[in-house]
């Protein structure tokens, strides 16, 4: 019973840290319509920046300033915001999928840097001794787990409320207006580019925060944590939950992480040890197919967006193909 509770707390803590990342993606995609294929890169930046600042100094490694955890988290957010602003600035005037390609390249490069900048990141061996919140209780796993769960839930709640408030603010309304119809929003005198860049930076900050929270909960990070698979998982969470809906992003994160954990342990139990790798591949195949099927059948996700009726989910297509449909009598 205690074990189960402990596992539950562990599972939920991880799930909620994904929810923070997913919330960030929702600000970028759901609110501003900006497509980020480099989620893993921003999560990694957050984890490593916070890790560098908070870990104790270690011989042969740059960094290790033993700073308090909140400073690490704040710095992670700043780093995530600055980097996403820069990438957004580079591509925001171009076609929407150029941003996708650029963020994808960024994630590849970030992972490469984590792997190769050994003196800074620990290279392939990763970075350990990242301070864990409530480490004083580490001897009592249940209490430690519950406290951490509480902390991550609080951080998520704060971010959730902030993003919700933002969505219903004029800023959020303008963002959605731009997302629905950029030409109209621009002609109304709103600086669409500027608004979207801000949203993109905010989303990047949330992703980095999620990465930092995760890193501190586990206490150890390595480049392998930040493969494109992570980006894919977070996207699946958002699509399942329904883009444009902050609550959906949180629910999607928990649901998909649960499915992921259950299917992983099912594979662990059912598949013979020498075939485990294959089982894991099959898991990815199934999730990939599921993502496509949801996009085909329920493009607004399980919960979907409230208030505005989004044409974006299955409307606003490429004008060249859509010229077939648009009424222009």
């Amino acid at each position: 019973m205690i074990d189960l509770l402990g596992y539950g707390a562990f599972f939920l803590t991880i799930a909620l840290s994904y929810a923070i990342i997913c919330l960030g993606l929702n600000v970028q995609w759901g609110q501003a319509g900006l497509f980020n294929v480099g989620v893993a890169g921003f999560v990694a930046i957050g984890a490593y920046v916070s890790g560098l600042l908070t870990t104790p100094a270690l011989a042969g490694r740059v960094g290790g300033f033993s700073l308090p955890i909140p400073i690490g988290w704040a710095a992670a957010m700043v780093a995530g915001a600055v980097l996403s602003y820069a990438l957004g600035w580079l591509t925001i005037r171009l076609r929407s999928d150029y941003l996708a390609i650029t963020t994808f390249g960024f994630a590849v490069t970030a992972q490469l840097a984590a792997l190769n900048l050994e003196r800074l990141t620990g290279g392939p061996f990763g970075m350990s001794f990242i301070p864990r919140p409530f480490s004083a209780f580490a001897a009592d796993p249940l209490r430690f787990g519950l406290f951490n769960l509480g902390l991550v839930a609080l951080v998520l709640l704060a971010m959730f409320l902030a993003v919700e408030r933002l969505s219903s603010s004029p800023f959020g309304r303008v963002l959605r207006a731009i997302r629905e119809d950029e030409t109209a929003a621009v002609s109304l005198g709103k600086d669409a580019k500027h608004f979207r860049l801000k949203a993109f930076a905010l989303g990047g900050a949330l992703m980095a925060l999620g990465g930092a929270v995760q890193a501190h909960f586990i206490g150890f990070i390595a480049p392998d944590n930040y493969l494109p698979l992570l980006t894919f998982q977070v996207w699946t969470m958002l699509i399942v939950g329904g883009s444009g809906n902050n609550l959906g992003a949180v629910v999607g994160a928990v649901v998909v992480w649960a499915l992921w954990a259950v299917s992983a342990s099912a594979i662990g139990a059912l598949v013979p040890a020498d075939q485990q790798a294959r089982g894991a591949s099959l898991q990815i195949v199934l999730i990939g197919v599921a993502l496509c099927v949801i996009l085909l059948l329920r493009p607004r996700g399980l919960i979907g967006e409230r208030r505005t009726i989004s044409r974006f989910a299955d409307g606003r297509g490429d004008t060249r193909w859509r010229r077939l449909r648009r009424p222009d009598r």
Binding site: L229, I284, C292, P299
Partner: peptide, 29 residues
């Protein structure tokens, strides 16, 4: 299907991302 219903470009990009994961994992399998 996305083209037929006039889906946004980016929906197709996401779908292609999912398809890429599935196809690659199938090879690994």
């Amino acid at each position: 299907s996305f083209r037929a219903r006039g889906s946004a470009t980016i929906i197709m990009v996401i779908a292609s991302f999912g398809a890429s994961m599935a196809l690659r994992a199938l090879l690994e399998f």
